[in-house]
């Protein structure tokens, strides 16, 4: 790990986060891609300064680059591709429905917010604790002679 690589990952994460907070799905997808690159960069450099490709050819073990972060990063790359494909499908579907790929606000959540504003008053009726309680037999009395 060097300051250069650390700063580079920081930049990729910052750009990715910035794009994630947008309303356009295609920008969000780009953001996910940048985040993925940033994460892979961290993974690989956390394995040390690099070295010979980890393909065993008789060299001393300390010459090889760390294979484990590479395996992790390889997995991460492929998964990011899968996610990108899925997100693109989301964007495609969004375009089919609305002609755009804008992520709209959830209307129902907005309605909860508004409902609360309209019903801010107390919901609990103030019962007099000493008043007579209603009888649970109310329906019986109709049958009484």
């Amino acid at each position: 790990m060097t300051i250069l690589i650390a700063a580079l990952s920081g930049l990729l994460f910052a750009c990715g986060s910035w794009l994630l907070m947008q309303r356009r799905l295609s920008r969000i997808i780009i953001g996910v891609g940048l985040l993925g690159h940033g994460a892979n960069l961290l993974l690989i450099t956390s394995g040390g300064t690099g070295g010979r490709p980890p393909i065993i050819d008789g060299s001393p073990l300390s010459d090889y680059a760390d294979p484990l972060p590479q395996a992790l990063a390889l997995t991460a790359i492929v998964i990011t591709f899968g996610i990108t494909a899925f997100l693109l499908a989301l964007g495609y579907r969004s375009w089919q429905l609305t002609g755009d790929d804008q992520v709209e606000d959830d209307v129902e959540d907005r309605m909860i917010e508004r409902w609360e504003a309209d019903h801010a008053e107390s919901e609990h009726p103030d019962f007099d604790p000493d008043a007579e309680l209603p009888s649970d037999l109310a329906s019986n009395q109709a049958d009484q002679p």
Partner: peptide, 13 residues
């Protein structure tokens, strides 16, 4: 986010 990643990368190094 960028700053945190930067610092974390340096610390993990």
């Amino acid at each position: 986010v960028g700053v945190t990643v930067f610092v974390l990368a340096l610390v993990s190094a």
